[in-house]
Each structure stands twice: as C-alpha cells, then as structure tokens.
C-alpha cells in the first residue's frame, strides 16, 4: 500500500534522511573529536569507515549475527587506529601524511578482502519503529530508526561529560592542549594519544558497520562516498565539541536527502546545486564565524604538532 503525500514529502524526506543518513557522520566525527582532543589528527578514518563497513558485512554474512559484525567492525577499526597511533607518534612523523596513507591502506584492504562479499546479502540490523502511531506508510518508514543512532546520540553528551567532568577527560585535554603541562603532571603522552586514537577508530569502524548493515545496507566499494573525510572536517566545523558534532552530523545527514526529495516533488532544475547544499552551508558558516583576530576557539593547543 502506498499513499501520496505530495509536498510534505520534502520535510519528511529530510527528517527521514537525518534519522537514516547521519549515523556514519556522527560516529566518525565523535571518534575524530576524541582523537583531536588528544592533539593528533587521524585523516585515515575514511579508510577505517570502509574497513568497518566491509568487515561488518563479511562477519554478519558469515555468522548470521549483525551485532557480531558491528563488534568486529569496531575491532577492525581499532587495528587500523593502532597502526596510525604507532606511526604518527614516531619522532618527526607527520600525522596528516600518515593519515592520507591510512586512507589508501584502509580502503585498499577493504576492497581487497571485500571482493567476495559484494554479491551476497547479509542479515541487517534491527530497527525501532517509532512511526507505528501513524497510518501513513511514508511516515512509518521515515521514522524507522536504528539502535546505533540512539547509541550515537547518547554517546555525544557522554563524551562531553567525559571531557569536562572526569579525570581521564582532563588527561586527554591536557595532552592535547599542552603536552608539557601534561608531562609535568606525570601523564604518559604517548599512552593517552594511543588510547584516544584507538578508541576514536573503534567508533569510526562502527560508523562503517552502520553503512553496510543498515543504510543503505549493502557492501560496495563506493559505499562511503567520502563521508569519512567529511566527518573529519565536521569536527573543525563543530569546534571540537561533541554536542556540536552531533548537531553537525544530523545536519549533514539530513542535507543528503534534499536533492533527491526536491526532484521527487517536481523541482527538477539545479539538482547539482541542491546536492551541494551542505557544503555551501558549511562554507557560509565558516565564513560567518571566522575572525582574523583570534585563532579558532576550542582548537586543542597542540593539535597536529608533536
């Protein structure tokens, strides 16, 4: 049974798109936020996202348990994160360069190992039907949400709390803002950064599992279409604040639906422009909020420098 809903389809698609499409952004940007708070940049999360997507799909297909797939995706992410953490903490190694190498390595390993899993269909993650109150199928479908979305939404305030109110959060911030002060406090900088990068990559791997096990729900080599890199940029956009990362991720998730939704109600021109709308919005916000007088507020003091 299908029902026509006309122009209401646009806001509905944006809401649906927000609920469906924002989870990879959310997990990757939270992971990157944690990593960058400790003073390291991990550009390789694009590769981690792909590896996560591939390993989740492969494990879910082999074992029949999508949740096991999610777990393995996180572990695969941790493995890549460990490589990045180890390499980028060697003396005189630039973490941007290592990150770019890790994008290529992560996607390469995902494509290489993922070949046999492009064809088969793996079991998908369960959904919560929040739209059961409505008798309109489009509303029911838009309000289907994944448990991973709830997990991500809960994680953002939790991470904020972690940074501001816990001793371990203070360590991470200290290492990221002023390594010398942290060293004076007796904190092992290497260990804190290692743990932050590995934990951040774990989250990115789970973001990848969402792509292949929920939405769009299959493994192919183009599945991420650059979302990992965009999520890394989101962290700067969100000023290294987990709560703002969440809002930014929801915004970008919803924006993906604008182009197709407008075309489906008959706005047929300029679809390239509508597809570019999230990026235009980002640029606009960056221009409005930038200032020549001070550096970015919220940026960890030692970000990117060893």
């Amino acid at each position: 049974m299908t029902t026509e809903i006309g122009l209401w389809g646009v806001p509905l698609a944006i809401i649906g798109g927000t609920l469906r499409g924002s989870v990879p952004f959310l997990f990757v940007s939270l992971g990157e936020c944690l990593t960058e708070k400790s003073g390291k940049i991990n550009l390789g999360l694009e590769g981690t996202l792909l590896t996560g997507a591939m390993s989740a799909y492969a494990i879910a297909y082999k074992t029949g348990s999508p949740w096991l797939g999610v777990l393995v995706a996180g572990l695969a992410g941790m493995a890549l994160g460990f490589i990045h953490a180890w390499l980028s903490q060697q003396p005189k190694v630039n973490d941007i360069a290592v990150g770019i190498a890790m994008i290529i390595f992560g996607s390469g390993i995902a494509f290489f190992l993922g070949k046999p899993f492009i064809q088969p269909s793996a079991p998908q993650l369960p959904t919560f039907e929040l739209g059961a109150w409505s008798n309109l199928p489009p509303v029911q479908s838009a309000l289907k949400i994944s448990p991973l979305l709830l997990l991500g939404l809960a994680l953002a305030p939790l991470m904020q709390w972690f940074f501001t109110s816990t001793r371990w959060g203070l360590y991470v911030r200290a290492v990221g803002d002023s390594p010398d002060a942290a060293r004076a406090m007796g904190i092992s900088i290497n260990r804190v950064r290692m743990l932050s990068i590995v934990a951040g990559s774990f989250l990115a791997g789970i973001g990848g599992a969402y792509l292949s096990l929920y939405y769009p729900g299959s493994w192919s080599e183009r599945i991420s279409s650059g979302q990992g890199l965009m999520a890394v940029a989101l962290v700067i956009f969100a000023r290294w604040n987990p709560i703002q990362c969440m809002y930014a991720a929801l915004l970008f998730g919803g924006a993906q639906a604008i182009g197709p939704a407008l075309q489906s109600v008959g706005v047929n021109s300029y679809y390239y422009l509508f597809n570019a709308s999230p990026y235009i919005l980002t640029l606009a916000i960056m221009i409005i909020t930038c200032s020549p007088k001070k550096t970015l507020s919220g940026a960890p003091g030692a970000l990117g420098s060893s």
Binding site: R20, Y215, P260, A261, Q263, S264, V265
Partner: peptide, 22 residues
C-alpha cells in the same frame, strides 16, 4: 531523479525512499 554520478549509494537510497513516499 538524477543523482549526479554513477555510484552514489546513499543518494540512490534517498531517491528511492523519496519516490516511494510520493
């Protein structure tokens, strides 16, 4: 609905959902 490129899985899924809604 034109997605703009040959392989954009998320846009394709969004397009499919929007059309079913219509």
């Amino acid at each position: 609905i034109f997605t703009g490129d040959w392989s954009l899985p998320i846009k394709e899924a969004e397009a499919a959902n929007s059309m079913v809604d219509q």
